[in-house]
Design a protein around this nucleic acid. Structure first.
Length: 622
RNA sequence: CGGGGAGUGGCUCAGCCUGGUAGAGCACCUGGUUCGGGACCAGGGGGUCGGAGGUUCAAAUCCUCUCUCCCCGACCA
């Protein structure tokens, strides 16, 4: 019944074989009670990982094997555009002080002291270190461009680790850094990464989208995230099904429908008595108007060098986006005003806040102060109790609106922005909503919003680090110039997690062959049957010889147990060696489709190889 | 850091309110019967009940403090 000749059999026997009976693959019938997201439950059940602490995980045999495959793909693709380094995970304080991030990183950085009392930290990213290498070594434009990358462990003391491997305190990251002589060079390095990232995620079998993202607090001119849609994600993506526009909600914009303005009752603001109607829904119902006719006011304190009062104004039916607010202000941090601060700066209680009559910082004064604040030179923007008023674009050109009167139980109507109140800053500070118009000209599509997890991020850093840390090279004219930088990251574990999130069911998950710990599991349905075992061994050896990673399930378990385990642990193909083996047939099961086909034993290797090839073809064409 | 929940054999949980010799299912070991979708029978091993202190004749159970983990929020280069 064997199809292999004696000589072939002996040489196949010499091959190393992964026999399940000898391996440590601790599958669980039940998931730990504290695992909520699918990937977390399944990674634990499948024996890939075990939790050691909050956001700290042990990777066991299968988990590490899969991560190694992901790393191999990342390395293979990155080597096409960059050079692999390996920087330390434990870092001295000095470079961080130079860049200003020793304090800037705050609590998120793990810090420790050595025996001499010197400050050290665990690396959470490596801009500073790569930049210090550049500063010490790069001298001429002839050495540029450079792309340096590494695949390395990162440490971040997250305020709240969560969702299994999705947000952890120690993880593996591929981070790369580019150094170019000018912006055009940076564009090229950025595009190279964009291309390579697409290839990497495609090879890993991810259904990803590329979105515009917030470019960070400084100098970033362009920033892209690579996202995988999943309910377990922490980011929201707005996208247009018509033209393909896609952006992180922290960045997304939309086209607003015109609003029907209220009829004025006078040519100036007029107080109305609105007892107990602090909520916008109440006042809209009371005046029989749309919330879009209301001006929402959110009062913040923003941290520059000191805390400064900020009042943000936007349409009553819009939500404020704090990331956008932070960016528009150039502030380090924002928080809501306390009751006392409301009384001091707004002179009104929450629910009845409005822009009319506030002591607002003038736009010209702000511009000057803004620069100063960024440098940390100015201490006080409002000696007179002035407030920074930031108005959303959605209020531009609007008329006869309703807003709080800064007085308990009173609102104002006939309020027209520009006529009845001014502002310090006009900016985009709202989150777009599903159903709003696509911002692209002539598109006309309606935006949809979905949850996603970020697997990669590329962005143009500009001169932030090269400038602050003093990287200088000579250009063609012998003049000292500062190289421009880019920085690019991929979360290795997140690739695995995202792949599981996108392909799982009640019984387990399935990975693409490219990142699965094994391509195929050969299940000997009855290990007590010597003939079956022999057939399974030989078949597994043939598959292995054909270049496939094979797991041979030779355990002395009932068939049902083996099938359940095989379905659980993410291996894309299974070959059942069982009842039909006597007539030269085995079953080939594709986990993704849960579909089984009978194949002649002599053809099964070719079949599996063909399936794997089709899978890769499919991935690269999508 | 604010709010909520949970810590009892490896896993899932019961017991706690009303103090009185620590339990079940799964997993594990031995023997037997089974053998294509998480088998069955019999026997067996394994738990300072997160930790410390207190109340009591007696604490998994009541009280105080503390540690850890999970969820929501804040936060998230």
């Amino acid at each position: 019944m064997s199809c292999v000749c004696v000589v072939g059999r002996e040489s196949l026997r010499a091959l190393f074989m992964h026999r399940w009976s000898k391996l440590f693959i601790p599958t669980l019938r039940e998931a730990p009670a504290d695992a909520e997201v699918a990937s977390h439950r399944l990674l634990v059940r499948a024996g890939y990982i075990r939790q050691l602490g909050a956001g700290i995980y042990n990777y066991l045999f299968l988990g590490q094997r899969s991560l190694n495959k992901i790393i191999a793909i990342v390395r293979q693709e990155m080597d096409k555009i960059g050079q692999e380094f390996y920087l330390p995970g434990i870092l001295p304080k000095e470079p961080w002080v130079e860049s200003g991030r020793w304090t800037g990183m705050g609590e998120n950085m793990f810090r420790l002291k050595d025996r001499k009392g010197a400050d050290l930290c665990l690396g959470m990213t490596h801009e500073e270190i790569m930049t210090s290498i550049a500063r010490n070594e790069l001298r001429s434009y002839k050495q540029l461009p450079q792309i340096w990358y590494q695949i390395q462990t990162k440490f971040r003391d997250e305020p709240r680790p969560k969702s299994g491997l999705l947000r952890v305190r120690q993880f593996t990251m591929k981070d790369s850094y580019s150094f170019d002589i000018d912006a055009a060079g940076l564009d090229k390095s950025f595009d190279l990464h964009d291309g390579v990232y697409r290839t990497i995620f495609t090879r890993c079998g991810l259904k990803f989208v590329v979105v515009e993202a917030d470019s960070g607090s400084m100098g970033g001119s362009q920033s892209q995230e690579f996202m995988v849609y999943t309910e377990a994600g922490e980011d929201f993506i707005a996208s247009c099904p018509v033209c393909g526009y896609a952006a992180n909600l922290e960045k997304a914009i939309s086209r607003l429908e015109p609003v029907t303005e209220l009829e004025p009752t006078a040519d100036k603001p007029e107080e109305i008595y609105t007892p107990g109607m602090g909520a916008i829904a109440d006042i809209a119902a009371f005046l029989k108007m749309s919330p879009a006719n209301d001006i929402k006011c959110v009062a913040y304190m923003a941290l520059f060098k000191d805390w400064q009062p900020v009042a943000a104004f936007l349409r009553g039916d819009h939500d404020l986006n704090e990331t956008k607010l932070l960016r528009a202000l150039g502030a380090r941090e924002v928080r809501f005003m306390t009751g006392e601060e409301l009384a001091l700066y707004m002179r009104g209680p929450a629910g009845y806040l409005g822009p009319v009559g506030l002591n607002i910082v003038g736009a010209s004064k702000w511009k000057f102060t803004h620069e100063e604040l960024l440098k940390g030179e100015s201490k006080d923007v409002n000696p007179m109790g002035e407030i920074i008023a930031i108005v959303d674009h959605g209020l531009e050109g609007r008329k006869n609106m309703v807003c709080g009167a800064n007085k308990l139980d009173y609102h104002l109507r006939n309020v027209t922005p520009g006529r009845d109140f001014g502002w310090t800053l006009l900016a985009d500070i709202r989150s777009v909503n599903e159903g709003e118009g696509c911002p692209k000209d002539h598109c006309g599509g309606k935006l949809v919003v979905g949850k996603a997890v970020e697997v990669g991020h590329i962005f143009k850093l500009g001169y932030k680090y090269s400038e602050s840390m003093g990287v200088r090279v000579l250009d063609v004219n012998g003049k000292e110039v500062t190289p421009i930088m880019g920085s690019y990251g991929i979360g290795i574990e997140r690739i695995l997690t995202a792949a599981i999130e996108q392909s799982n069911d009640a019984n387990g998950f399935w990975l693409p062959t490219s990142i699965a710990p094994f391509a195929v599991v050969v299940t000997i349905t009855n290990a007590a049957d010597a003939a079956l075992r022999e057939t399974g061994e030989m078949l597994a050896a043939e598959l292995e010889a054909a270049g496939l990673d094979v797991l041979l399930d030779d355990r002395d378990e009932r068939a049902g147990v083996k099938f359940k385990d095989a379905d659980l642990i993410g291996i894309p193909y299974r070959i059942n060696v069982g009842k039909k083996a006597g007539s030269g047939q085995v079953e080939l099961v594709a986990r993704a489709k849960a579909a089984s086909t009978d194949v002649a034993m002599g053809e099964v290797v070719a079949h599996v190889k063909q399936r794997v090839e089709e899978e890769q073809l499919l991935a690269s064409s999508s």
